[in-house]
Design a binder for these strands. Structure first.
Lengths: 132, 132
DNA sequence: CTGTATCCGAGGAGATACTG
DNA sequence: CAGTATCTCCTCGGATACAG
C-alpha cells in the first residue's frame, strides 16, 4: 500500500470532487451543510453534548420537525452521534463526532459573520432600495 | 465620539444580534448566506471580476433564474458589485466588494470542507443505512 | 449577451395530533 | 421526554418564452 500524506490525499480529492458540478456528490453535500439549521445545530453542540430539549430551547422557534430532521441528517452523515439513556422518561443526547467537530469552525465562522456584518448589510440594502 | 476597538464593537454586536432567534435580522442573513448558490458564486468570484456568462459556465448547470436571483441578492446586500459596459452586445461584470471579500474565506472553507470530507460522509451513510 | 416573466412540480417548513 | 405522522402552505428551482 502506497503511503500518501494527508495533503496529497486532499489534492487527489480536489480533483475527484468538484462542487461546481451538479452531479458531483460534493455538490449535494454542500447543499446539505450550507443550511441555516445545520449551522445553528452544529454551533449549539460546540461546547459538548446536548439533550434534545436543550437544543429546542437554544434554537428558539425551531419546529420539532426541522430539528429532528436536521439531527437525523447530521447523524446519518456521521457529524453527530445520538446516545439514548434508557430511563423514565428517556434521555437522548446529541454530540459532535470528530468529523462534525472538523466542521464546527466553518459553521461558527458563518454564524459569526452574519452577526458581525448585519449592520453593513442592512446599510447596503437601504442604499440599494433607495431610488436615486 | 467614543473610541471603541473592533473587538469591543463585535462584542456589542453579538449582544444585539443573535442568529438563534427567529426574529433577529442576523437569522435571516444567515439563512441568506448559508446557501449553496451563494457559496458557489462567491467562490467563483474569488480571483477577480467575472462576466455573467463566465459564471454560468463555471457553475455548471445553474439555471439563469437562480444565478440572476443569487447575484441580485448579493448585490443588494452589498457583497457584490455589478458593472455594465455599454456595448453591443452589452457586457456585465460582477465583482466582490470589500464586504463580499470578507465573506470569501468562510465560503471557501465550506466548499473545501464538502469536497475534502466527502469520502468520510459517504462511509458514514453506508454504515447508517446498513441494517445490523 | 444579459437578462425578465411566467408556469409548474418537488421539496422545505410550520401546525397539529398522536405514541413509547 | 423525544419523537413520528399528516396536512397544508409556500418557496425553491427548473423549463420555457420573450426582450433590450
Amino acid at each position: 500500500m502506497p503511503t500518501r500524506t494527508a495533503s496529497q490525499r486532499r489534492a487527489e480529492a480536489s480533483i475527484i470532487y468538484d462542487a461546481y458540478l451538479a452531479e458531483c456528490p460534493a455538490r449535494q453535500l454542500l447543499d446539505r451543510i450550507a443550511d441555516k439549521w445545520v449551522s445553528l445545530v452544529v454551533n449549539a453542540l460546540a461546547d459538548g453534548p446536548r439533550r434534545y430539549s436543550e437544543l429546542q430551547r437554544r434554537l428558539a422557534s425551531v419546529s420539532q420537525k426541522m430539528l429532528t430532521q436536521t439531527l437525523r441528517h447530521l447523524e446519518r452523515d456521521g457529524l453527530v452521534s445520538r446516545t439514548v439513556t434508557p430511563a423514565v422518561p428517556v434521555r437522548v443526547a446529541y454530540e459532535l463526532t470528530p468529523l462534525g467537530r472538523s466542521l464546527l469552525p466553518v459553521m461558527r465562522a458563518i454564524k459569526d459573520w452574519a452577526e458581525e456584518h448585519m449592520d453593513e448589510v442592512q446599510a447596503a440594502r437601504v442604499t440599494y432600495d433607495t431610488p436615486d
